[in-house]
Design a protein around this nucleic acid. Structure first.
Length: 356
DNA sequence: TTTATTTGACCCAT
DNA sequence: ATGGGTCAAATAAA
């Protein structure tokens, strides 16, 4: 992309982001006495912004080698947050997003590597908790290493249900050297386990651990059952050829097209998730609240969800459950259901193809 | 007793 | 040879 186009691209993102922020503020004002229609409209607005931003960011960055040094020197348009909630650390978002681009590129080059992505989780230190809260999945620690040059050790986790449900996702948690309240969480692969079945047993052990060990580090967000059920109840996904062809899934993947704001949870939640070729290349944004009970905020970027390598999962699960699992990222159902290693073969991310 | 964590050993890529 | 990631025995917790 040349400079002019890049500038336009940044500006567009900036404008979209501002619009989204304003819509969010409007919703806050309306929420006290809002009718369902108002809320629905706002959800639509926000959803549109989300998708537009995501499309832009994807097409704008994947189509070119790298975003031209975006915002690193004091703020370009990409500084805008993708997150509906308006998470504060835009630089982190930005950095993460660039990381995702790189990950995607790498994944295309090296077909064997699992997709990885990194989230930076900021934890408020004045609430007595020293680690990120749980992300709705059950993790089992299997290692800890001191990393060269790092002040804090790196912890290694795998899904508790690796063997039971053949779920091979892992994550690494590394406390930031510069800001000990920031935890960098790197995920590898995607959950294929049944989140619903696992969800109940997740939260309490982690909280306990967090209170016990100050240098422990975990995950990022809560995913209440209520939200999960909401998600499940409204999920509509293309189920065809799912069980057999996940590794060569064609340009068809789930996508939350509508967000639901659950007041008690202070979070947005997707309520309808089906999208097909038309929006391929977009991905579900991080619908993450800045106001969880533990005052965490998160910077999350895109999520590559490789379903390869986990085909024979959940033989006895229902179709819906399979889909939930297959479309759930560690931050709660927000990712691709597309194998990034197939991206280059199946899909051209060029801008021209994107904007008709 | 079962399940999770800790931690040194081991493996592998560089 | 080194560093990062995983394994697995020992230990702790439930």
């Amino acid at each position: 992309m040349d400079c002019a186009t890049n500038w336009e691209y940044k500006t567009l993102i900036n404008e979209l982001t501002q619009g989204m922020e304003q819509a969010k503020q409007l919703r806050v004002h309306l929420s006290s006495s809002s009718s369902e229609a108002q809320e629905f409209l706002l959800q639509r607005i926000l959803s549109s912004y989300e998708k537009a931003l995501l499309i832009l960011k994807w097409s704008g960055s994947v189509g070119q080698p790298q975003p031209t040094a975006p915002a690193s020197a004091g703020g370009g348009a990409l500084e805008s947050s993708l997150s509906v909630d308006g998470s504060p650390r835009s630089e982190e978002l930005n950095k993460n997003f660039r990381d995702q681009q790189q990950e995607l590129i790498n994944a295309s080059k090296k077909r064997k590597t699992l997709p990885t992505w990194t989230e930076q989780v900021k934890v408020s230190s004045d609430n007595g908790l020293e680690g990120p809260s749980d992300d709705g999945y059950s993790w089992r620690k299997y290692g800890q290493k001191h990393i060269l040059g790092a002040k804090y050790p790196r912890s290694y986790y795998r899904c508790t249900y690796r063997h039971i449900q053949n779920c091979w996702v892992t994550k690494q948690v590394q406390r930031s050297d510069e800001d000990p309240t920031i935890f960098e969480i790197t995920y590898r692969g995607a959950h294929t386990c049944n989140l619903a079945a696992n969800n109940n047993s997740v939260a309490s052990p982690e909280k306990k651990e967090l209170k016990q060990k100050n240098n422990q580090n975990n995950n990022q967000m809560q995913q209440p059952n209520e939200m999960l059920m909401n998600f499940r109840a409204n999920l509509r996904v293309n189920t065809t050829d799912d069980s057999e062809n996940k590794d060569k899934i064609s340009p068809s993947f789930s996508f939350p097209s509508t967000l639901t704001y659950i007041e008690g949870e202070n979070q947005y939640f997707p309520t309808s998730t089906y999208i097909d070729e038309d929006l391929l290349g977009t991905y579900s944004p991080p619908f993450i609240s800045p106001a969880t009970s533990e005052s965490n905020y998160f910077s999350v970027s895109c999520h590559m969800n490789s379903l390869g390598g986990a085909h024979n999962l959940q033989q006895s699960e229902s179709d819906l459950t399979d889909l939930i699992s297959a479309t759930n990222s560690p931050i709660g159902g927000l990712d691709f259901s597309i194998d990034p290693t197939e991206l280059d073969a199946n899909f051209n991310f060029s801008r021209s193809g994107f904007f008709k």
